[in-house]
Amino acid sequence: MQHLSAVPCGPVPGRLTEGPVWDQRSQELLWVDITAGLFHRGSLGTRGDGTGLPDVVRRTTLALDSTVGAVHPCRSGATIAAVGTSIQMLSLTDGRAEEVATAPLPADGIRRRFNDAGCDPRGRLLVGTMATDVVPGAGALYLLEPQGLRVLMESVTVSNGLAWSPCGQLLYYADSATGRVDVFDYDLATATPSRRRPFVEVSGGVPDGLTVDRDGSLWVAIWGAGQVRAYASDGTAHTQVSVPASQVSSVTFAGPRLDILIITTAAEGLTRDERRAQPDAGRLFVCRPGSTGLPAVPFDDLTRQEIP
Protein backbone atom coordinates (compact mmCIF):
# COMPACT_ATOMS: atom_id res chain seq x y z
CA MET A 1 0.00 0.00 0.00
CA GLN A 2 1.37 3.43 -1.00
CA HIS A 3 0.80 6.15 1.62
CA LEU A 4 0.82 9.80 0.53
CA SER A 5 -0.15 13.17 2.02
CA ALA A 6 -1.91 16.13 0.43
CA VAL A 7 -1.14 19.79 1.14
CA PRO A 8 -3.58 22.73 1.15
CA CYS A 9 -3.91 25.20 -1.71
CA GLY A 10 -4.25 28.97 -1.70
CA PRO A 11 -7.98 29.65 -2.24
CA VAL A 12 -9.82 30.43 0.98
CA PRO A 13 -11.89 27.62 2.48
CA GLY A 14 -15.43 27.12 1.18
CA ARG A 15 -18.50 25.68 2.88
CA LEU A 16 -19.08 22.56 0.78
CA THR A 17 -16.34 22.60 -1.84
CA GLU A 18 -17.00 19.93 -4.49
CA GLY A 19 -16.97 18.82 -8.11
CA PRO A 20 -13.43 19.60 -9.35
CA VAL A 21 -13.05 19.22 -13.13
CA TRP A 22 -9.92 19.98 -15.15
CA ASP A 23 -10.64 21.68 -18.50
CA GLN A 24 -7.79 20.41 -20.65
CA ARG A 25 -8.40 22.95 -23.43
CA SER A 26 -8.26 26.07 -21.25
CA GLN A 27 -5.88 24.54 -18.68
CA GLU A 28 -8.26 25.63 -15.93
CA LEU A 29 -9.75 23.98 -12.87
CA LEU A 30 -13.51 24.27 -12.35
CA TRP A 31 -15.05 23.62 -8.95
CA VAL A 32 -18.11 24.57 -6.91
CA ASP A 33 -19.13 25.49 -3.39
CA ILE A 34 -22.51 23.76 -3.33
CA THR A 35 -24.45 25.45 -0.54
CA ALA A 36 -22.81 28.85 -1.09
CA GLY A 37 -23.96 28.72 -4.74
CA LEU A 38 -20.50 29.56 -6.09
CA PHE A 39 -18.77 28.43 -9.29
CA HIS A 40 -15.00 28.96 -9.28
CA ARG A 41 -12.40 28.82 -12.04
CA GLY A 42 -8.68 28.74 -11.41
CA SER A 43 -5.31 27.75 -12.78
CA LEU A 44 -2.22 26.02 -11.48
CA GLY A 45 0.47 28.28 -10.04
CA THR A 46 3.71 27.89 -8.14
CA ARG A 47 4.23 27.66 -4.42
CA GLY A 48 7.29 28.45 -2.36
CA ASP A 49 7.15 25.75 0.30
CA GLY A 50 9.72 23.42 -1.24
CA THR A 51 7.26 20.61 -1.92
CA GLY A 52 7.60 20.89 -5.68
CA LEU A 53 3.82 20.79 -5.93
CA PRO A 54 1.70 23.39 -7.74
CA ASP A 55 -0.82 25.64 -6.08
CA VAL A 56 -4.33 26.48 -7.29
CA VAL A 57 -4.90 30.16 -8.06
CA ARG A 58 -8.55 31.22 -8.16
CA ARG A 59 -9.21 33.45 -11.20
CA THR A 60 -12.98 34.04 -11.31
CA THR A 61 -16.06 33.29 -9.24
CA LEU A 62 -19.66 33.31 -10.42
CA ALA A 63 -22.40 33.57 -7.76
CA LEU A 64 -25.55 31.67 -8.74
CA ASP A 65 -29.05 32.06 -7.35
CA SER A 66 -29.28 28.57 -5.83
CA THR A 67 -27.17 25.63 -4.80
CA VAL A 68 -24.79 24.42 -7.51
CA GLY A 69 -24.07 20.71 -7.40
CA ALA A 70 -21.74 20.42 -10.38
CA VAL A 71 -20.30 22.21 -13.40
CA HIS A 72 -18.73 20.82 -16.55
CA PRO A 73 -17.01 22.36 -19.59
CA CYS A 74 -18.82 22.21 -22.94
CA ARG A 75 -17.54 21.70 -26.47
CA SER A 76 -18.79 25.20 -27.36
CA GLY A 77 -16.72 26.83 -24.61
CA ALA A 78 -19.70 27.43 -22.33
CA THR A 79 -20.22 25.67 -19.02
CA ILE A 80 -23.13 23.43 -18.10
CA ALA A 81 -24.21 23.58 -14.47
CA ALA A 82 -26.59 21.69 -12.17
CA VAL A 83 -28.19 24.59 -10.29
CA GLY A 84 -30.89 23.84 -7.73
CA THR A 85 -33.12 21.45 -9.68
CA SER A 86 -32.40 22.89 -13.14
CA ILE A 87 -29.71 22.35 -15.74
CA GLN A 88 -28.31 25.65 -16.99
CA MET A 89 -25.85 26.78 -19.64
CA LEU A 90 -23.57 29.48 -18.25
CA SER A 91 -21.82 32.09 -20.35
CA LEU A 92 -18.41 33.01 -19.00
CA THR A 93 -18.34 36.29 -20.90
CA ASP A 94 -21.40 37.94 -19.35
CA GLY A 95 -22.45 35.53 -16.57
CA ARG A 96 -25.83 34.85 -18.15
CA ALA A 97 -27.60 31.55 -17.51
CA GLU A 98 -30.00 29.75 -19.84
CA GLU A 99 -32.12 26.94 -18.44
CA VAL A 100 -32.11 23.87 -20.66
CA ALA A 101 -33.93 21.32 -18.47
CA THR A 102 -35.54 20.84 -15.07
CA ALA A 103 -35.67 17.70 -12.96
CA PRO A 104 -39.04 15.89 -13.24
CA LEU A 105 -39.61 15.69 -9.50
CA PRO A 106 -42.48 13.89 -7.76
CA ALA A 107 -45.08 16.07 -6.02
CA ASP A 108 -44.37 14.71 -2.55
CA GLY A 109 -43.26 17.90 -0.80
CA ILE A 110 -39.66 16.74 -0.41
CA ARG A 111 -37.10 19.43 -1.24
CA ARG A 112 -34.40 18.18 -3.57
CA ARG A 113 -31.33 19.51 -5.34
CA PHE A 114 -28.86 18.32 -7.90
CA ASN A 115 -25.63 16.90 -6.57
CA ASP A 116 -22.80 15.33 -8.58
CA ALA A 117 -22.64 15.01 -12.37
CA GLY A 118 -20.35 13.71 -15.09
CA CYS A 119 -20.07 13.30 -18.85
CA ASP A 120 -19.81 9.89 -20.46
CA PRO A 121 -17.21 9.14 -23.18
CA ARG A 122 -19.57 10.51 -25.85
CA GLY A 123 -20.18 13.80 -24.07
CA ARG A 124 -23.61 13.06 -22.59
CA LEU A 125 -24.41 14.42 -19.12
CA LEU A 126 -25.48 12.19 -16.24
CA VAL A 127 -26.59 14.03 -13.11
CA GLY A 128 -28.06 12.94 -9.78
CA THR A 129 -30.33 14.41 -7.12
CA MET A 130 -30.74 14.07 -3.38
CA ALA A 131 -33.14 15.41 -0.77
CA THR A 132 -31.79 18.49 0.99
CA ASP A 133 -32.44 16.76 4.33
CA VAL A 134 -31.17 13.41 2.96
CA VAL A 135 -34.51 11.54 2.92
CA PRO A 136 -33.63 7.91 2.07
CA GLY A 137 -34.45 6.96 -1.51
CA ALA A 138 -35.67 10.43 -2.52
CA GLY A 139 -33.02 10.99 -5.18
CA ALA A 140 -32.49 9.73 -8.71
CA LEU A 141 -29.90 9.56 -11.49
CA TYR A 142 -30.79 11.23 -14.79
CA LEU A 143 -29.50 11.43 -18.35
CA LEU A 144 -29.81 14.77 -20.14
CA GLU A 145 -31.39 14.27 -23.56
CA PRO A 146 -32.52 16.85 -26.15
CA GLN A 147 -36.09 16.54 -24.90
CA GLY A 148 -35.18 16.80 -21.21
CA LEU A 149 -34.01 14.64 -18.32
CA ARG A 150 -34.65 10.88 -18.43
CA VAL A 151 -34.54 8.80 -15.26
CA LEU A 152 -31.84 6.13 -15.32
CA MET A 153 -32.13 5.05 -11.69
CA GLU A 154 -34.59 5.74 -8.88
CA SER A 155 -34.53 5.27 -5.08
CA VAL A 156 -31.14 6.92 -4.65
CA THR A 157 -30.31 8.66 -1.35
CA VAL A 158 -27.12 10.67 -2.05
CA SER A 159 -26.23 10.53 -5.74
CA ASN A 160 -22.49 11.07 -5.90
CA GLY A 161 -19.39 10.12 -7.87
CA LEU A 162 -19.65 9.17 -11.55
CA ALA A 163 -16.72 7.95 -13.64
CA TRP A 164 -16.11 5.65 -16.59
CA SER A 165 -13.39 3.08 -17.18
CA PRO A 166 -10.77 3.90 -19.85
CA CYS A 167 -12.64 1.72 -22.36
CA GLY A 168 -15.92 3.47 -21.52
CA GLN A 169 -17.77 0.21 -20.98
CA LEU A 170 -17.92 0.38 -17.18
CA LEU A 171 -19.61 3.07 -15.09
CA TYR A 172 -18.57 3.57 -11.46
CA TYR A 173 -21.18 5.18 -9.21
CA ALA A 174 -21.53 6.00 -5.52
CA ASP A 175 -24.82 6.38 -3.71
CA SER A 176 -23.00 7.47 -0.57
CA ALA A 177 -25.68 6.17 1.79
CA THR A 178 -24.94 2.58 0.70
CA GLY A 179 -21.35 2.82 1.96
CA ARG A 180 -19.96 1.37 -1.25
CA VAL A 181 -19.04 2.12 -4.86
CA ASP A 182 -20.97 0.13 -7.44
CA VAL A 183 -20.02 -0.69 -11.01
CA PHE A 184 -22.32 -1.09 -14.02
CA ASP A 185 -21.89 -2.32 -17.54
CA TYR A 186 -22.40 0.76 -19.72
CA ASP A 187 -23.85 0.69 -23.21
CA LEU A 188 -22.20 3.56 -25.05
CA ALA A 189 -24.72 3.44 -27.89
CA THR A 190 -27.76 3.95 -25.66
CA ALA A 191 -26.18 5.50 -22.54
CA THR A 192 -27.72 2.70 -20.49
CA PRO A 193 -26.18 1.30 -17.29
CA SER A 194 -26.98 -2.32 -16.45
CA ARG A 195 -25.92 -5.28 -14.29
CA ARG A 196 -25.25 -3.24 -11.16
CA ARG A 197 -22.94 -4.93 -8.65
CA PRO A 198 -20.74 -3.83 -5.73
CA PHE A 199 -17.21 -2.78 -6.65
CA VAL A 200 -15.82 -1.92 -3.22
CA GLU A 201 -17.21 -1.61 0.31
CA VAL A 202 -15.88 1.44 2.17
CA SER A 203 -15.04 1.38 5.89
CA GLY A 204 -14.24 4.27 8.22
CA GLY A 205 -16.16 6.80 6.11
CA VAL A 206 -18.46 6.98 3.09
CA PRO A 207 -17.61 7.20 -0.62
CA ASP A 208 -18.15 10.60 -2.23
CA GLY A 209 -16.71 11.97 -5.50
CA LEU A 210 -14.41 9.79 -7.57
CA THR A 211 -12.30 9.61 -10.73
CA VAL A 212 -10.53 7.00 -12.86
CA ASP A 213 -6.90 7.09 -14.00
CA ARG A 214 -5.35 5.91 -17.27
CA ASP A 215 -4.56 2.48 -15.81
CA GLY A 216 -8.19 1.95 -14.79
CA SER A 217 -7.71 2.53 -11.07
CA LEU A 218 -10.54 4.24 -9.21
CA TRP A 219 -9.68 7.14 -6.86
CA VAL A 220 -12.40 7.74 -4.27
CA ALA A 221 -12.85 10.63 -1.82
CA ILE A 222 -13.77 9.13 1.56
CA TRP A 223 -16.01 11.57 3.45
CA GLY A 224 -15.43 11.39 7.19
CA ALA A 225 -12.07 9.63 6.93
CA GLY A 226 -9.82 12.45 5.72
CA GLN A 227 -8.61 10.24 2.88
CA VAL A 228 -8.60 9.52 -0.82
CA ARG A 229 -8.26 5.81 -1.56
CA ALA A 230 -7.27 4.24 -4.88
CA TYR A 231 -8.43 0.81 -5.99
CA ALA A 232 -7.17 -1.25 -8.91
CA SER A 233 -9.73 -2.48 -11.44
CA ASP A 234 -10.10 -5.71 -9.43
CA GLY A 235 -11.05 -3.74 -6.29
CA THR A 236 -7.68 -4.08 -4.53
CA ALA A 237 -6.71 -0.95 -2.57
CA HIS A 238 -3.21 0.26 -3.49
CA THR A 239 -2.88 3.93 -2.47
CA GLN A 240 -4.09 6.04 0.43
CA VAL A 241 -3.77 9.84 0.43
CA SER A 242 -4.13 11.48 3.84
CA VAL A 243 -5.89 14.86 3.90
CA PRO A 244 -5.87 17.11 7.02
CA ALA A 245 -9.64 17.64 6.74
CA SER A 246 -12.10 14.88 7.57
CA GLN A 247 -14.83 15.73 5.04
CA VAL A 248 -13.11 14.86 1.77
CA SER A 249 -15.69 15.44 -0.95
CA SER A 250 -14.18 14.80 -4.40
CA VAL A 251 -11.05 14.33 -6.45
CA THR A 252 -9.77 14.81 -10.00
CA PHE A 253 -6.53 14.75 -11.99
CA ALA A 254 -5.27 18.09 -13.29
CA GLY A 255 -2.34 19.78 -15.01
CA PRO A 256 -0.91 19.59 -18.55
CA ARG A 257 0.11 15.95 -17.96
CA LEU A 258 -2.90 15.13 -15.74
CA ASP A 259 -0.52 13.98 -13.02
CA ILE A 260 -1.68 16.28 -10.20
CA LEU A 261 -4.40 15.09 -7.85
CA ILE A 262 -6.77 17.89 -6.80
CA ILE A 263 -8.89 17.13 -3.74
CA THR A 264 -11.88 19.10 -2.44
CA THR A 265 -13.07 19.20 1.17
CA ALA A 266 -15.92 20.70 3.21
CA ALA A 267 -16.24 22.64 6.45
CA GLU A 268 -20.03 22.64 6.60
CA GLY A 269 -21.44 20.54 9.42
CA LEU A 270 -18.29 20.56 11.56
CA THR A 271 -18.58 21.56 15.19
CA ARG A 272 -16.65 24.52 16.55
CA ASP A 273 -14.07 22.19 18.10
CA GLU A 274 -13.72 20.25 14.85
CA ARG A 275 -13.17 23.48 12.92
CA ARG A 276 -10.42 24.50 15.34
CA ALA A 277 -8.79 21.09 14.88
CA GLN A 278 -9.17 21.28 11.08
CA PRO A 279 -8.36 24.89 10.11
CA ASP A 280 -7.96 23.93 6.44
CA ALA A 281 -11.34 22.19 6.15
CA GLY A 282 -13.13 23.51 3.06
CA ARG A 283 -9.90 24.09 1.12
CA LEU A 284 -8.57 22.48 -2.02
CA PHE A 285 -5.63 20.13 -1.54
CA VAL A 286 -2.99 18.86 -3.95
CA CYS A 287 -0.85 15.75 -4.24
CA ARG A 288 1.34 14.10 -6.88
CA PRO A 289 0.39 10.40 -6.74
CA GLY A 290 2.57 8.94 -9.51
CA SER A 291 -0.47 8.20 -11.68
CA THR A 292 -2.06 10.11 -14.53
CA GLY A 293 -5.72 10.74 -15.13
CA LEU A 294 -8.05 10.67 -18.09
CA PRO A 295 -9.05 13.96 -19.72
CA ALA A 296 -12.57 15.11 -18.87
CA VAL A 297 -14.88 14.70 -21.86
CA PRO A 298 -16.63 18.04 -22.57
CA PHE A 299 -20.42 18.09 -22.66
CA ASP A 300 -21.44 17.85 -26.32
CA ASP A 301 -23.67 20.89 -26.77
CA LEU A 302 -22.85 21.19 -30.46
CA THR A 303 -24.78 18.13 -31.63
CA ARG A 304 -28.21 17.01 -30.43
CA GLN A 305 -27.62 13.39 -29.49
CA GLU A 306 -30.75 11.31 -29.93
CA ILE A 307 -30.67 8.01 -28.05
CA PRO A 308 -32.15 5.07 -29.99
Score class of each variant (00 low, 15 high):
Gln2Thr: 12
Leu4Trp: 02
Leu4Gln: 12
Ala6Asp: 05
Cys9Tyr: 08
Pro11Asp: 04
Val12Trp: 00
Pro13Leu: 02
Gly14Tyr: 05
Gly14Cys: 14
Arg15Cys: 09
Val21Leu: 06
Asp23Lys: 12
Trp31His: 10
Ala36Phe: 01
His40Pro: 04
Gly45Ile: 03
Gly48Val: 02
Gly50Thr: 13
Asp65Gly: 15
Ser66Lys: 13
His72Pro: 01
Ile80Phe: 02
Thr85Leu: 11
Thr85Arg: 15
Met89Arg: 15
Ser91Tyr: 04
Ser91Ile: 01
Ala97Glu: 11
Ala97Asn: 11
Ala103Phe: 05
Pro106Cys: 07
Asp108Cys: 07
Gly109Met: 09
Ile110Gln: 11
Arg113Pro: 02
Phe114Ala: 12
Asp116Met: 01
Ala117Cys: 04
Ala117Asn: 03
Cys119Val: 01
Asp120Val: 11
Arg124Met: 12
Arg124Ile: 05
Arg124Gln: 12
Leu126Asp: 08
Val127Phe: 00
Met130Phe: 00
Thr132Val: 15
Val134Ser: 10
Val135Lys: 11
Gly137Met: 07
Ala138Asp: 05
Tyr142Arg: 02
Tyr142Cys: 09
Leu149Phe: 01
Leu152Val: 05
Met153Ile: 11
Glu154His: 14
Asn160Thr: 02
Leu170Lys: 14
Leu171Ala: 05
Tyr172Met: 10
Val181Arg: 07
Asp185Arg: 09
Asp185Trp: 04
Asp187Met: 06
Leu188Met: 14
Thr192Gln: 15
Ser194Thr: 11
Ser194Leu: 02
Arg196His: 06
Arg197Ser: 01
Pro198Leu: 10
Val202Pro: 05
Gly209Thr: 02
Leu210Met: 12
Thr211Met: 04
Val212Ser: 10
Gly216Glu: 05
Ser217Thr: 07
Trp219Met: 01
Val220Leu: 15
Ala221Gly: 07
Ile222Tyr: 07
Val228Gly: 08
Arg229Glu: 03
Tyr231Lys: 15
Ala232Arg: 15
Ala232Gln: 14
Ser233Glu: 10
Ser233Cys: 09
Ser233Gly: 08
Gly235Ala: 15
Thr236Tyr: 03
Val241Asp: 01
Val251Ser: 06
Val251Trp: 00
Thr252Trp: 00
Arg257Asn: 08
Leu258Trp: 13
Asp273Pro: 00
Ala277His: 11
Pro279Leu: 05
Asp280Gln: 14
Ala281Trp: 10
Gly282Ser: 11
Arg283Ala: 13
Leu284Asn: 13
Gly290Val: 12
Gly290Asp: 13
Gly293Pro: 02
Gly293Trp: 00
Pro295Trp: 08
Val297Lys: 14
Pro298Cys: 10
Asp300Ile: 04
Leu302Asp: 09
Thr303Ser: 13
Gln305Pro: 03
Gln305Tyr: 11
